[in-house]
């Protein structure tokens, strides 16, 4: 199978880490910019994983799921819930925070306020469950998906919020894994989040929808 990623896109971190952790034989192709690879999608959408039968997977979480399942592991309901949360809430919030920091020049601390709610949710859940990873005692696809979305905002681990201690120790744990570190560094190239500037500039300014009051 072949994993196609685009240089300078933060979405590559997640799938490169998953490939390093759970798959032995993945060919990795790096394209200089967003190119059209998946034949049925009209807009360029990378990363993409081309399977040996020619079929494509085109979302980062689907790619991670496939690699994780292929390594003989199982995805639980709780992992599904974290992956769904990552795709619908965390990922858009992180991209918006990155955009406001890297493109609009907001201070990092201010930009991080965009994801504060998500970090608190994660911290509380990690604290409550009392195991080192998000769903169990061992690293799962949910850890990698959630970690990779947040990582570009905390490339220097010393800026992690002290008041969220469970989050902080979990984040350090995952960041220190060799596979995760290599995946991130191969895209960040020592430049921190500004490595993603060109990619982020092409995005329409992300607008986080205002929170609506919860229904009954």
């Amino acid at each position: 199978m072949k994993l196609v990623i685009s240089e300078g896109s933060p979405h590559g971190i997640k799938v490169l880490a998953a490939a390093a952790l759970w798959a032995g034989n993945v060919e990795i192709q790096r394209l200089q910019q967003e190119e059209k690879v998946v034949p049925f999608l009209s807009q360029p959408k990378l990363p993409a994983l081309q399977l040996d039968n020619g079929n494509f997977l085109f979302t980062t979480n689907a790619i991670c799921r496939y690699l994780f399942l292929s390594s003989g592991k199982d995805i639980t309901d709780l992992s599904n819930q974290w992956l769904e949360w990552e795709a619908t809430e965390l990922q858009p919030a992180c991209i918006a925070a990155l955009h406001s920091h890297v493109v609009q020049g907001k201070k990092k601390e201010e930009a991080i306020l965009n994801i504060q709610k998500c970090l608190i949710h994660l911290d509380q859940s990690l604290g409550k469950e009392n195991h080192p990873y998000i769903v169990t005692d061992s690293l799962s696809v949910a850890d990698v998906a959630v970690w990779a979305s947040i990582y570009p905002l905390f490339t220097s681990l010393d800026s992690l919020p002290d008041n969220l201690s469970s989050f902080k120790s979990w984040f350090k744990n995952v960041s220190q894994l060799e596979e995760c570190q290599k995946a991130a560094e191969s895209l960040l190239k020592g430049q921190g989040a500004s490595a993603f500037k060109a990619f982020l500039q092409k995005l329409p300014t992300p607008v986080l929808p205002a929170e609506k009051p919860a229904c009954n």
Binding site: N53, N61, Y66, E84
Partner: peptide
């Protein structure tokens, strides 16, 4: 495994 992933991809 491929079908399971594709199902979840369309749910996403």
């Amino acid at each position: 495994i491929e079908e399971k992933t594709i199902v979840q991809q369309w749910l996403e």
